[in-house]
Each structure stands twice: as C-alpha cells, then as structure tokens.
C-alpha cells in the first residue's frame, strides 16, 4: 500500500513539474501586467528547440559528452522560448497589440512549429523516421547515484533528474525575488499600476520586456523537461497536450504566488493520474478526474472575486497595455 502511495506521489511530482515551470514563468509574466496566453505555444517551442539542439548534436557524429548533452538542449530550449516571448513582448509592449489575440496567435504558431519540426525534422535533415534521442534523454534522467540505497524516501523524492529540482529552486527564487527584493517590488508595482510605477521612476517598458522574456524562458524549460526527461528524448505530435493551459490554470490556483504553485503543481499532477491508482475506477470517471483541476481553478477564480481580498486578486493592470499619454 505504502509503495503505491509512494509511486503515486512520485508520479504526481513528475506530472507536476512541467506545470510548475509553466506557471512560474506565467506568474512572472503576469506580475508585469502581461497576460501571456502564448505560454502553451512557448512550452511547445521549449520542447522542440531542445529536440532540434540535441538532434544536431547527436547526429553530428562526435563522441557525445554528457555535459554537452545536457547543456545544448537546455540552452536551445531557453533560447527558443525566450525568442517567442520576445515576439509577444514586441507586439504587446512596443506595438501595444491586444494581449489575448497576440497570445493566442503565439500559441497557434508555437504548437505549429513544434509539431512541424517534431514530425519532419528527420525527413528534412536526415534519413527519416521518428526522432529518438535516447542518449540525451538518459543524460537528463540521470539522478543521484546513491538513490538506490535510500529506500522508499529516496525513491519517492530523490530519484528525479536535475530539471525537477531546478523547477522548485526557480519557483522559490522567483518567490523570494518578488517579495524580498527591490526588483520584485518594482515589478509588482508595474503590474498593479504602471502609471504610478512610471511616476516613481521605474522603466515600465524594460520591466515588462524582461519579465515576459524571462517568464517565457522558464516556461520553455517545462517543455524541455517533458520531452527530455519525462518522455526520454522522443517527440510525439500533440504529446504535450493541454499542459500549457493547465499551467495557466495553476497560476490562478496558486493566486499568483510561485511558492503556492509548487504544491499546486503536485496536486494538479496528482489529479492528472489519480485514476490510475484508484482501483475499480471506470474509464469514464477518469475523464471526470482530469476535469478536476479546471473545475477547482474556476472555483478559486469565482471565490476570490466574491471575497475580494486584495492580496488574492490578479495584478490590477493584467491584460492592459500601458501608454503614457501626452498632454
């Protein structure tokens, strides 16, 4: 029994990690007042960029260095997803385009790129067939060598690849920056009331750009984790599914606080797979379980609007572009 629970927790964490990356990235973005609905696309791009990076490295014919096996896809993912966030930033901040429309277009674009290259990378540049980057996947999955000796605890909590721990570190660091540094203070002010922030001498445009691009980069790592660690280095079209939207749901569930999203991600991850662990559950009720994260999020959303506690509200200028009116 305890074994089952341990496996369940472990699987829940595994499922939760891409969501955690996505939601941390989106929280940072939203704190600057940008509602980036392109996050699902950005996460796809994060995944495919890492695949492309790893593919060229693996097929270059050199002896594979495990460090490079990790570094190349990692920075490819970061680069690709930050580039996407830059497109979004340019359109919404500099050109003041509608954030919803831009975000949705970005998602269409990102998912398209992901599925296109995922499906035709090898037929474009190689011998054809589906891509499998087992070597890279193994490097990402590598965990502490001593885990085997740590018993159940080790197996449950210490048997992940480094990206899993990184996601938690990033969420904690983000939480600390937001709440305990000058940069975080200024960022929150930008998302709440850009005109006031502007009057206080904060460069609103720069903060919005940086937060959106860094947030995009972090979200992209979620795609990287999914492809390289969870799947183990293969791409299946549409395999990433709705996780990007679930990450946005998690932002609300966590009330725009990265610290909350750590536990929230495990909870969401658990709901994603809990049907596998409840004996006698029919396939139909599985689908209801998968619905739960969204229902819970809606409930949270409605509750915070009824309670009107100011700390729990979305950043006040979320979704609006800022234009300093001249007189």
């Amino acid at each position: 029994m305890i074994d089952i629970i341990a496996t369940f927790i472990k699987q829940a964490i595994i499922q939760g990690i891409p969501l955690l990356y996505g939601s941390t990235g989106e929280i940072i973005t939203e704190k600057s007042g940008n509602l980036n609905l392109g996050i699902p696309g950005i996460m796809y791009i994060g995944g495919i960029s890492s695949v492309i990076g790893a593919y060229f490295y693996e097929s270059s014919g050199v002896d594979l260095n495990p460090v490079l096996c990790v570094v190349i896809p990692f920075f490819s993912a970061l680069f690709g997803s930050m580039l996407m966030a830059l497109i979004y930033s340019f359109l919404t901040i500099t050109l003041r385009a509608n954030q919803n429309v831009t975000g949705l277009a970005l998602t269409t674009f990102g998912v398209g790129i992901g599925n296109f290259f995922g499906g035709s990378l090898s037929s474009l540049f190689g011998e054809g067939g589906s891509i499998s980057l087992i070597r890279t996947g193994e490097c990402f999955k590598a965990t502490f060598p001593f885990v085997e000796n740590l018993g159940l605890f080790g197996k449950t909590f210490l048997s992940f690849g480094f990206l899993a721990y990184l996601s938690i570190v990033i969420a904690l660091v983000a939480s600390w920056i937001l709440n305990h540094t000058r940069v975080g203070l200024n960022l929150r002010a930008v998302g709440e009331n850009p005109a006031t922030a502007d009057a206080a001498g904060i460069n609103v445009t720069r903060y919005k750009y940086l937060a959106t691009c860094i947030g995009g980069g972090i979200a992209g790592l979620g795609g990287l984790y999914f492809i390289m660690d969870y799947i183990g280095g293969a791409w299946t079209n549409g395999g990433f599914g709705d996780r990007g939207w679930l990450a946005i749901a998690l932002v609300i569930f966590a009330l725009w606080k990265p610290k909350h999203s750590i536990l929230g991600s495990i909870l969401f991850g658990g709901l994603f797979i809990v049907y596998l662990y409840i004996p006698g559950l029919s396939r139909s009720s599985q689908e209801i379980f998968k619905m739960l994260p969204y229902l819970v999020t809606i409930l949270v959303l409605v509750l915070i609007s009824i309670r009107r506690r100011r700390e729990d509200q979305p950043p006040a200028s979320l979704g609006l572009s800022y234009f300093r009116e001249e007189r």
């Binding site: 269409t108 998912v111 992901g114």
Partner: peptide, 9 residues
C-alpha cells in the same frame, strides 16, 4: 502543421 506556422506569422 506548416499551416499553423504560416497562420501564426
């Protein structure tokens, strides 16, 4: 998926 890319652009 190439159509999504073109649409996006």
């Amino acid at each position: 998926s190439v159509s999504d890319i073109l649409t996006g652009i």
